[in-house]
Amino acid sequence: MERIPILRMGDFLLVTIQVDMHDRLAMTLQDDLTRQIVASNSRGVLIDISSLEMIDSFIGRMLSNISLMSNVLAAQTVVVGMQPAVAITLVELGMSMPGVRTALNVEKGMMLLRECLDSDDSEVEDDAS
């Protein structure tokens, strides 16, 4: 079966979506990612959507779900590279995806993930002391 590859980079997982996904493919990605977070004990997920020319409510909901589920699994998700036309259209559609963290590109997304993790870690240390 067709699948979107998930790359492991140290503590993080990286997914680059390059195809126009049909609904089942999007659902499979959601399942695969949650499984991978647990299997590889990842702390963060980067989803690069810079090649996506369209996001409808289905794909939008998938991105929100991945964010929520990763949170439950103690990982952070950052969605990176959304194109302006896609962003304007999503807002017009009525999806502002409030719980989803975003960054302009993979590099900035990586920085954001590190910051999140650092502040998480320091909170843990604070609690311990």
């Binding site: 126009d20 369209m54 409808d56 409510s57 289905f58 036309a85 304007i88 259209t89 559609l93």
Partner: peptide, 27 residues
């Protein structure tokens, strides 16, 4: 979606208009 996109390109739709139309079609 793909056919709608191609037609929108052929009619010289601006990128933002292409995207809006294709998204509505998908829904």
């Amino acid at each position: 979606r793909q056919v709608a996109r191609q037609w929108a390109i052929d009619l010289n739709f601006k990128l933002i208009d292409q995207t809006k139309f294709v998204t509505a079609v998908s829904e």
